[in-house]
Write a protein that binds this DNA or RNA. Structure first.
Lengths: 230, 230
DNA sequence: CACCTAATAAAAAACGATTTTATTGTTATG
DNA sequence: CATAACAATAAAATCGTTTTTTATTAGGTG
């Protein structure tokens, strides 16, 4: 047990500064703390996150690939713009790709996967809806668990990216409307049941309906509000 | 006309070092110069490409998102591994996504697109098959032109990524077999004709057959040969 | 003789400083 | 008075160096 260095870096052990920056900035953009089009100055982020310029830059590069950040030639980075077209494309792609992944997952169904699925769903139902951060994490965990068995890493990566892009629109539309009239819990349960039962058509239909319902919700209630330049 | 600075940096004006590094490394991996699993040392690349460590690092981060580079925790970067499963997934996804994009493109068909398509095809037929670099560029240009009209930037990005991943396997299998028995030129022409005619079913069927034929070719002739550790 | 441990070497990651590029505000000029 | 050139400022991009981590090798011990 080496007892060298007392407390050199702020972020806990075994986490790179790049990882820290990536996670932090990703969250700030997804949750709308950095609104669309917002200039992301290196120095500001540097001070805010207490890391050097290199990790910030690297994190921003990665987020560019995730479509959450836009890089402009020699003019730095900014939070990616939003638009109705973009929202629609994300919804369309998500439906197509998750349909694919879910069917593959069900086709390869096995006890381990079913158990993981049930577990993820249980945790979601137990989640405290008030605690935003953990609820969102568990919600994503459940949806990704549905697809995990597809054995298609690239496809899963795309689904994960699109999921996050969609969550961003949810935040932009305001946190309120999600927990309104709809019985989202029931929708999740019915998707789970179809998936575990091995009924690919039903599971896929329910999943897509789930997404499209949310999509319609967002479209109605003032999407793409203010788009400040700075 | 400012006549300050004689010749400070190697890369021509108006091109960032990051861009230079990204393009160079991407080519080296796709063409197989860096075999799968190859360690990509920052310092080596730094010396080779004549740029600092930061741009290299940034380029490698971007290539990680493109699935061409693998980042290992605190152990640096390496050229992404290859496998039969990976190859099959790329082929499957490519077929699904390009089918989608092509149908969208044809549904939105317009004279400008048709003209751009004919042009891209013409250039491909005129290309010197001996000059690898330009031929590959024109080949990709034609295939992307087919999809360009889909008005789905995210989908196009995915298709472009998957295209490059597939080209990598072509190079790994050896440049020889591509120009063997098959009449690839005819296949391209027939895809073009169906697309311009607005026949989505025929165009898609021909495009997918084109890809699957290439896929079978590669699968047969010794895919995934040596995978050196360094 | 094999295995564990400590010292050394190598590489990755991060930082701070420097250079280059864009932007803004000001002044001169048509 | 408007426009264009210039200067000053701010930020991005890049570089060289330092720090931290991992890999390697030599030495000691059961």
């Amino acid at each position: 047990m080496t007892l060298s260095r007392a407390l050199p870096n702020p972020q806990s052990s075994m986490t790179s500064a790049t990882q820290t920056a990536y996670t932090a900035i990703q969250r700030m953009i997804v949750t709308g703390l950095f609104p669309p089009g917002q200039k992301l100055k290196i120095e500001t982020l540097k001070d805010r996150l207490q890391v050097g310029a290199s990790p910030i830059r690297e994190a921003l590069s990665l987020l560019t690939s995730d479509q959450l950040v836009e890089r402009i030639d020699q003019r730095g980075f900014r939070s990616a713009p939003v638009s109705l077209e973009n929202f629609d494309e994300i919804l369309r792609l998500r439906c197509a790709l998750e349909d694919m992944a879910l069917r593959q997952a069900i086709a390869r169904s096995c006890p381990e996967w079913e158990e993981a699925l049930v577990l993820a769903h249980h945790r979601l139902t137990r989640a405290d809806a008030a605690d935003d951060t953990v609820f969102e994490a568990l919600h994503k965990a459940f949806h990704m668990a549905l697809l995990d068995n597809s054995a298609s890493p690239i496809l899963l990566r795309y689904c994960s990216q699109l999921y996050d892009l969609n969550v961003r629109y949810r935040y932009l539309a305001g946190r309120s409307l999600n927990y309104g009239r709809r019985d989202v819990g029931r929708e999740h349960r019915e998707i789970l049941e179809a998936a575990v039962a091995g009924d690919a058509n039903a599971a896929s239909a329910r999943l897509l309906a789930h997404y499209q319902k949310t999509g319609a919700f967002l479209r109605d209630s003032g999407l793409v509000p203010v788009t400040p330049d700075e």
